[in-house]
Every structure is written in C-alpha cells, then in structure tokens.
Design a protein around this nucleic acid. Structure first.
Lengths: 360, 360
DNA sequence: CCGGCTTATGACACCGGTGTCATGTCATCG
DNA sequence: CGATGACATGACACCGGTGTCATAAGCCGG
C-alpha cells in the first residue's frame, strides 16, 4: 500500500506538501498540486486514517450500537425493522457533518453492548448512540472517559440524554380522532404491560376518553399479548369474542400494534365480520409493510423513528461541540395519526372539516 | 486520555511490558502483571486501535456495505428487513474471528457505495462485503488495491465472488410440494420480470410442472407487480378474478412474494372466498412478520438469508487468508419450503409420509 | 533599493502503540 | 562450578500521517 512518502517522492515534493494538497489547509502552487494529484492517481494512494487520527487526535467517528440488524436466532422475532428508521434518521442528520458512522450490532443480546462500546472507545469515537429495539429501560455500563452518549428509543436511571416516542400523546390522538369520527365504544387490545409503551398508550386512551366525557369501561380493555407468542391468536380471538358479545359491543378495535391488527383482520373475517363495514380496526406503529399492504389499509399512529434519529444525532452533536444543554430530561417526539380505510367514519358530517394526514 | 506510557509510569515498568500484558504475547511476571493491571484500572486506560493498527499493519476490520438500514425516504419501500438476516449471518460467522465489523449504509442510493468503499479503504479494512436489498445485478467501482470483496444477494459482470439465493430451486420445490398435496391447477401471480428473481422463479415453476407431467397453462400465470405500487391491488384483483372465472380455476395461488400474498388474502376474502378452505395461497420469501402473523399462517419458501451471510463471510475469510479458491462462480444457496396452514392438502393420503419442515 | 509582508515549501518532531534486539537473572545440567 | 538456555524486562526504532516552525521567493510601498 502506497504511503504519503511514495507520493511525495514521485511528485518530487515533501510529504507535508502532499498532506496540504489532500487537506487543502494551506495554499499550494498550481503546478505542484497537479504533480501531486498525478502521483496520487498513479499510485492509487489512499491515506491511512489510522495515521491521521493519531496525530490529529480526532477520529471523525460516531459509534452506533443497535440490536436491530440481527436479533438472536432463538427469539426469531420479526427483528426491529422499525428501529432501522432511527438509524436512517441518524445517518441523514450526520451525512453532512463529516463524521463517519460506525455501526455495531448486539445481535439482540444486551450483554454484547459492553464489549462493543469498548471497541468503539478503542477507535476513539467522538460520540455514541445506543438504539433500542423498542421503547424500554436499559442499563448500560457507564462510560468512564468523557465520550458523549445519547440513548434512542430507551432511557436509563442515570439521566443519560434520551430520545423517546411520545406514546401517550400518540394513542391519545388516535382515540380522539376515532371519537371525532363518531366512535363511542372503543375496544382496546393492549400490549403486555411490562413494555414501556403499554401503560403510556393506555394512559393516552383514557385521557382521550375522559376529555370527550366518555366513561372508561374495563370490559373494553384486555391484554392480548404474551411472551411466548404461541397462544396469542387464541387470546385475541377470545378477547374479541367476549367484547363482541357485550350488550354494547365496540364499533372499533384499537390494537396494541400493527402486527396485532394484522391478526385481528384475519380473526374478524374468520368470524364472518366485515372490515371495516361492520367493525373498524386501528393499529399503532405505522409499520408500513403491514399498514399499507393490508386490505383495506390500516389506520394507525406513526412511530416517528426517523425524526427520533434526527433528534438523537442533533443532541449528540451538540454535546460533542461542548454545548452545555440545559435540558437534561428525555426528548419526547410525537408522531401523527395515519388515517386509512380500516376505520369507518360513523358521522361523516362531523368530520368533513378534518383532513386525513397525508403520507409524507 | 491515558496512554500506554502513563500506565507504564504508574506501574513502574516499561511501555513494552504493558503492551505484553495487554496482548499476552510474551511471559510477564505475576507481580508485574498485577501492577500493570492495577494501573490500567486506575487510569481507565483504553488502548488506541489507531496506534496499534499503524505499527502492526493489521486493522482487524471487515467492511460491510448495505442499503438495508435506511432506504431513501422517497421510495419508502418496506426496507430490506430480510436483507438484515444476511448481515446477521455474516456477524454470526465472524463473531469468533477476532474481526470487528464496520457497517456502512448507502441509504438505498447506489452512488453512495463508492465513497463508502473509499472510507473503508482509508481504515484499511481487510475485506469487504456488499449486501444488496434483493437479488440483482450491480456494478461497483473496482477496488484498485487487492482488498478482497464478496457480493451477497447480488452479482456483477466482473466475476466478483457472489453469494446468491437459488430462486429457481426454491420455486420448484414449492410447486412440487403443492403437486404432491394434490394441486393440479396452480395459479402464479408473478413479480415483474425485471427483477432477477422473477424469471428464475418462473423457471422453477415450469420445471416442477414439467416433471409432474402437467401442461403449462399461460392463463394461470400473470404479472401482478408494477413499479409504482399504486394500482397493484387492482391489478391483483383483476388477475385473480380472471383466473377464478376460468373453466378450470386454480385451487391455489402462488404469489411472487409474501407481501403479495398478504394482499391476496384480503382480496380473496373480500370476494367472499375462504382461505384456505376454498382457495389456497402460497408466498415466497418466508418474510416472517407476514408469514407467521397472517391468519392462517402462510406456506412459503424461505430465502436463506442467514445462510447466505454465513457463506459470504466464509468465502471472504478464505480470500483474506490467501486461499486460492478454484470455484470462481457464484455460490447458490437454497432455502426450504415452509409448509403452513394456508394451503389445503387435497389428498391427505398422498402426503402422509411427508413431514412439514419445522421452523428452526 | 530595502524592510516588511504574503505565499510556497520543507525539515523535523510527535502521536501511541509494537517489532526487534539486547540485557540481566536464575535454574538446570554436565 | 561454569556453560546453557528459559524467562523477564527494557531501549529504541518505526508505522504514516500532521502540527510547528523555519526558510526561500515574490511583491509592494516608501
């Protein structure tokens, strides 16, 4: 591999001059520059970032840790596709910062985070972002040196800067919109409460009901998610069946997420109920593969992953440039409701002035 | 940031001895080792990989380029979740090699690959893997220095080592299995032919029919995918409608991929046809979020992404260790048929001896 | 015509590790 | 008891860039 000295020799100049041509940090004569550029091309010279990094003490690297890319094969969950949008947002935001993003992957095993952080520190990254698969609490090893770190889609109890989805607000907005559309009996098939998003969204559901003066009916809310995912379809079937047999059955089912909504479509249709003519369905996540491909397309709430990624990157860059942020707390990012055909408007007159949120 | 000299001073030894403790490449006295380890802990010393890399001329880095992580926002396709399994396979395979994997992302823009490769070369990666979103032909800039490169899920016309899914074989196996299950009229809703997988899978479909002595009926094969994805549902609806009105309608629809199958479920049910009692459906990809969550679960063909990733990593490592591979051609990897409830067994007697492929 | 200033370039040390070689200390063996 | 070798450790150069400073050439106004 050619070095800067090889280039210098071929071009008949000093190594430092070649360095100047490469970095443009000092004026170089036209003839000299051309000679250097010719030599670089001739030798296929590629500068070594290691050597540069040593002297300049700046790596230009941002470390990104995620479990998105590969989940452990055992829990072959549908991997965190959505989470990728966070990474996308980070990349978009950092694209013009001159930073190179190094992504490492925990394979879904949290314990792998520590060695990965260590690897990053060896490479002297200037900042770290940890991206979680879903809204949750994490406890990562503390970074002993001062390398700044931001948590995305998760938080810890050390007050590390965090970027989180506003689940309460999202569910609230969806239910509010359903009420505007004329729905009064709103079934809610919830995620299991251990997940951070569960209680928050349930809060949002109750808030929206309360604001509209609708009494909360416990018979309309059931947890339909379990760890093993085996009996989940049956759990859903039974919950839906119970609710539909109520004296006042729900006119719409809010599902804990879009994946659950996908199941609910199949179950309702197997029960002989037409979606959305007889029963409406709404999801959460705006998991596009599902929400847009389902027939009919699914009304849901966007998890603003891209925006969260952008915010995470911005907050990290602010920390790197040494800005002392006053806001220590988590940054909440809300996502819009995507109104699609899976929910029937019971009182068209009421909602004529509303505009459905357009995609993009 | 503490250096090896700081550690050496605190421990009262030479820098080289600290180096020996860190790398274990030469015996060190017990008392000395403990003194050094204490100093390291005291200073929170983290060695600089840049300095190490310079001297040893080995980076221990593998560069991975993918568009999976972020697709360009305009073409908000369902991003390459499946492709992530390739990355997972690569990581799994490389986990114990002592190599650090650096992942970079093109955001779905092919032109970004060149600068990313350059960045990797600056970091002196010892090998490169390019992972494509779907089976396709690519043309990347040639690597001028000798850094080995492997293509995964794609190929070029320069004969760069490539790892590809065996689409022909996969579709063949699925159709063969359908025939074993008693199906004779097999509708095929195909992907658009520009996609590399399209013609290959169609080949497999015809091969399986031919082997079973079933005549190929063009009325049963229609392209149902278009670029814009807007009119796709209608396209599908019409094709299905046409086929179902035939004198001998199909008993099963093979879909170009699982996403299409998801649509087909909704369409068939909206037409009042029960799945799978009246019509069976099969997909391709084994896109788990869809295939396992659909009700009933979808019969499909696995795209062996994880295995492809493993093979890609192995082939790369072989190239790095300088093994002159005789096999220059692409490596084809076949995936199994996943037999689930979306296909009715028309002749149970026939297939009793067959075992459905178990997941994992 | 000369001091002062800008422009263009080079010499050289230095970043933080590791490879090489030399040195010192014992234990072992003939 | 001296030669031999294994073990433990240190001195020093070197990897490939860049920061600092010095130096030479060119230009300008007085």
């Amino acid at each position: 591999m050619a070095t800067i000295y090889d280039v210098a020799r071929i071009a008949g100049v000093s190594a430092k001059t070649v360095s100047r041509v490469l970095n443009g940090d000092a004026p170089v004569g036209k003839a000299t520059r051309e000679a250097v550029e010719a030599a670089i091309a001739q030798l296929d010279y590629v500068p070594s970032s290691a050597a540069r990094m040593m002297r300049s003490q700046r790596s230009g690297l941002i470390g990104l840790i995620t479990g998105a890319i590969s989940m452990s094969p055992e829990q072959n969950q549908p991997a965190g596709l959505p989470e990728l949008f966070i990474v996308q947002g980070i990349q978009k935001s950092l694209a013009n910062s001159g930073m190179t993003i190094m992504i490492a992957d925990t394979s879904g095993v949290v314990e792998k985070a520590a060695p990965l952080i260590d690897t990053f520190l060896r490479h002297r990254v200037e900042g770290l972002i940890y991206v979680a698969e879903y809204h949750q609490k994490v406890s990562l090893p503390a970074i002993s040196d001062g390398t700044p770190m931001v948590l995305a889609n998760c938080f810890d109890d050390r007050g590390t800067p965090a970027i989180l989805p506003d689940d309460r607000r999202g569910q609230h907005d969806l239910v509010e919109r359903l009420i505007t559309a004329g729905h009064r009996r709103i079934g809610y098939l919830t995620l299991r409460p251990e997940i951070a998003a569960g209680p928050l969204r349930r809060d949002g559901y109750r808030m929206a009901l309360a604001e509209a003066g609708i009494a909360y009916d416990p018979a309309l809310v059931e947890n339909c998610e379990i760890e093993g995912r085996e009996g989940e379809t049956q759990l859903l079937w039974e919950a839906i069946d119970r609710m539909l047999r109520l004296a006042k059955p729900p006119s719409v089912f809010c599902c804990g997420n879009d994946k659950m909504a996908l199941r609910v479509y199949g179950i309702l249709r197997s029960m002989g109920r037409k979606v959305p003519v007889e029963v409406s369905v709404a999801g959460y996540d705006n998991y596009r593969v599902i929400a847009e491909t389902l027939y009919p397309p699914l009304t849901t709430v966007d998890l603003p992953y891209t925006a969260m990624g952008v915010r995470a990157a911005q907050r990290l860059m602010a920390m790197i440039s040494g800005e002392t942020r006053e806001d220590k707390g988590p940054t909440l990012v809300a996502g819009p409701v995507y109104w699609r055909e899976s929910v029937t408007e019971l009182r068209p007159a009421n909602v004529s002035q509303l505009k459905s949120v357009k995609e993009e």
